Simulated scan of single mutants.
Amino acid sequence: MARVLMYTTAVCPYCVNAKKLLAQKGVAVEEIRVDSQPQLRQEMMAKSGQRTVPQIWIGEQHVGGFTDLWALDKAGKLDALLAQN
């Protein structure tokens, strides 16, 4: 199972939905909260080029946000991506 890293905040409904979708797939998420540590938001922005949360990585691949993750799932591509090591 691929490592999943997600930058989140506490009150983000998209973050909650992303975590729910991944939990349904049996995936543990390594969560980095950027609301409590502003320097980590800068790190996220440097890595992703995005300001919004969630920002999700599966393995080394930047997936994007929840809508990107959901689109991968609907296209039938998420499971294969998660299965990579």
Rank of each mutant, 00 (worst) to 15 (best):
A2K: 13
A2I: 11
A2C: 13
A2F: 09
A2S: 13
R3E: 09
V4A: 14
L5H: 14
L5V: 15
M6N: 09
M6T: 14
Y7N: 07
Y7W: 09
T8F: 07
T9I: 13
A10V: 15
P13R: 01
Y14W: 02
C15L: 07
C15H: 07
C15S: 14
V16Y: 03
V16D: 06
N17C: 05
N17T: 01
A18I: 04
K19S: 11
K19P: 05
K19H: 12
K20W: 10
K20D: 07
K20G: 10
L21H: 11
L21N: 13
L22Y: 15
L22T: 07
L22M: 13
L22D: 12
A23T: 13
A23L: 13
A23W: 14
Q24L: 12
Q24D: 09
Q24S: 12
Q24T: 15
K25H: 14
G26F: 08
V27K: 10
V27R: 14
V27E: 13
A28L: 12
E31W: 08
I32M: 10
I32L: 07
R33F: 15
D35P: 14
D35R: 11
D35W: 09
D35G: 14
S36C: 11
S36D: 12
Q37K: 15
P38Q: 13
Q39N: 14
Q39A: 15
L40Y: 13
L40W: 09
L40F: 11
R41Q: 12
Q42D: 14
E43Q: 08
M45L: 01
M45R: 07
M45T: 05
M45A: 10
A46R: 09
K47I: 01
K47N: 04
G49W: 00
G49T: 01
G49I: 00
Q50S: 02
Q50E: 02
Q50K: 05
R51V: 06
R51T: 10
R51Y: 06
T52M: 00
T52S: 06
V53F: 04
V53K: 03
V53M: 04
Q55T: 01
Q55C: 02
I56N: 02
W57D: 07
W57C: 10
I58C: 07
I58E: 06
I58Y: 09
I58A: 02
G59Q: 06
E60P: 02
G64N: 04
G64K: 01
G64V: 01
G64R: 02
G64H: 00
G64C: 00
G65D: 01
F66M: 08
D68V: 02
L69T: 09
L69C: 06
W70D: 04
A71F: 00
A71Y: 04
L72G: 02
L72R: 05
L72H: 00
D73W: 08
D73G: 01
A75G: 03
G76E: 08
G76H: 05
G76F: 05
K77G: 03
K77H: 02
K77E: 03
L78D: 04
D79L: 02
D79M: 02
D79Y: 04
A80T: 03
A80E: 01
L82P: 12
L82K: 08
A83G: 13
A83H: 11
A83Y: 11
Q84M: 06
Q84S: 05
